[in-house]
Design a protein around this nucleic acid. Structure first.
Length: 425
RNA sequence: GGAGGAGUGGCAGAGCGGUUGAAUGCACUGGUCUUGAAAACCAGCGUGGGUGUGAGCUCACCGGGGGUUCGAAUCCCUCCUCCUCCGCCA
């Protein structure tokens, strides 16, 4: 959620940002509505304070009068305060309504994009900031997509997932299962080496938690919901991990906070079927190692670069061809100010698969989280960032497709000490 | 799941209807003293909102929400969490 003080001081920039995002023109008046509601809120607050202040003073003197035994005067005053109360409670109600309306409108506004974010509508307008320089792998004509390879080598079984749960819940088996576990360990170890503290968070979260990182309201449809307990299955570790710092005020020298977590991720992905989501391309449950940082506003973009470099290092070690995109305004997530997407080339499908998304949310999440740091200027909102490092299912798709050969599937060198084998055959 | 107890500032711990945003101790910050450190002493030390150029003034907040009252951390209702005992259990 944008800070109201930011909108107040940067109205033009907010409007400009909404334009970059392709936020519907006919809805941009919300900015001015928000500003008007804020003014209303302030004047109601001022009026209310006057009333309450008077009430407090009179109440005190009633107490004093009673002590002095001046009962009649006290009773008289009591009546007067009762009248005041009515005015106050009306103001209170009006203030509450105004605040609610203000929040409701504020929730509609997405984060303001970083100046480097290109304008644009769809993923076709994303900017390739780093393309794959070398040749893309070319496979034999009889090369198979990963779902066919999986059948051949018994790596994962989607049919079985259908039986147990439903479509989109793969069952990994044998060397496939071990490959999953190896990747998770490898990613966690790499994050640890880069200074991230490993955490294992809950996989179900409450409403407040889902709200604070921006999954609620609006994106309910993306999350599985356990109605009986009013809990949501996490779509990413970002949600529970970032919320570790909800309602926290940290010291300035606590920066940077660096956390990493492996979790399964659950996404409903309602309505997406078809050839492009075959196999592991889009599933409802997948594994992911996430990195999360809490940063000083002055250093958050430097941190973003470091996170991008970290993810890049992982892909290099896995020997996968990749490219980095800067998302355009229209493709940018609601809560993000700047996002880099990583895509790996899936040689048999001859297409790029998104495997990581690294974002700076600036104060958009911390405003909801109430995550601040102490500074000389008073308590300020910190910046949050996160990125996938890395998401598994598609990485596996790319590894098995790109590394297929008549002998079997070659395991990248860095993983071999984890898997204990160098070939799936 | 059943029965009982408890939730107060970073922590510990008073307060149980009237200048209590909240005693006291510890921790923390600044200062005095000291060659330095410790000790001792002095001072400061929650969050959010409104208002003012500013010092400041003011409102709200004692697990969350609602209520009673002229007035609530203190009384009532409700929800949540934690602890103890019983039951169940990886």
């Amino acid at each position: 959620m944008l800070e109201i003080s930011y909108i107040r001081e940067n109205r033009e920039r907010v409007l400009e940002g909404l334009k970059v995002r392709n936020f519907p023109e006919e809805e941009r008046h919300i900015v001015d509505e928000v500003l008007a509601l804020d003014e209303k809120r302030k004047s109601l607050q001022t009026e209310l304070d006057v009333q309450l202040s008077e009430r407090n003073t009179l109440s005190k003197s009633i107490g004093d009068l009673f002590k002095q035994g001046k009962k009649e005067e006290a009773t008289e005053l009591r009546q007067k305060v009762n009248d005041l109360k009515e005015v106050a409670s009306k103001l209170e109600q009006a203030l509450k309504t105004t605040k609610e309306e203000l929040t409701k409108q504020l929730l509609v506004l997405p984060n303001i994009p970083h100046p480097s974010v290109p304008a644009g509508n769809t993923d076709e307008d994303n900017e390739v900031v780093k393309d794959w320089e070398g040749p893309l792998p070319v496979l034999d004509t009889d090369a198979k997509p990963h779902w066919e390879l999986s059948d051949k080598y018994n790596i994962f079984d989607l049919e079985l997932g259908v039986k147990i749960t439903g479509s989109g819940f793969p069952v990994f088996r044998g060397k496939g299962a071990k490959l999953v576990r190896s990747l998770i360990s490898f990613f966690l170890d790499e994050a640890g080496r880069a200074g991230y503290e490993e955490v294992i968070p809950p996989l179900l979260v409450n409403e407040q938690t889902a709200y604070s990182t921006g999954q609620l309201p609006d994106k309910e449809g993306q999350m599985y919901y356990a109605e009986k307990d009013d809990l949501y299955l996490i779509p990413t570790a970002e949600v529970p991990v970032t919320n570790i710092f909800r309602d926290v005020i940290i010291k300035e020298d606590d920066f940077p906070v660096q956390l990493t977590a492996y979790t399964p991720c659950f996404r409903r992905e309602a309505g997406s079927y078809g050839a492009h989501v075959r196999g592991l391309n889009r599933v409802h449950q997948f594994d992911k190692v996430e990195i999360v940082r809490i940063e000083h506003p002055d250093r958050s973009y430097q941190a973003l670069d470091e996170m991008v470099a970290h993810v890049e290092g992982l892909l290099q070690k896995l020997e996968l061809p990749y490219r980095i995109l800067r998302l355009c305004g229209g493709d940018l997530g609601f809560t993000s100010a700047l996002t880099y997407d990583f895509e790996v080339y899936s040689a048999a499908q001859k297409r790029w698969l998104e495997v990581s998304s690294v974002s700076n949310f600036e104060t958009f999440q911390t405003n909801r989280l109430k995550l601040r740091y102490k500074s000389e200027k008073g308590n300020q909102l910190a910046h949050t960032l996160n990125g996938s490092a890395l998401a598994l299912a598609r990485i596996i798709a790319a590894i098995i497709e790109n590394n297929q050969s008549p002998e079997g599937i070659r395991i990248p060198k860095v993983l071999q000490s984890y898997t204990g084998f160098d070939l799936i055959d």
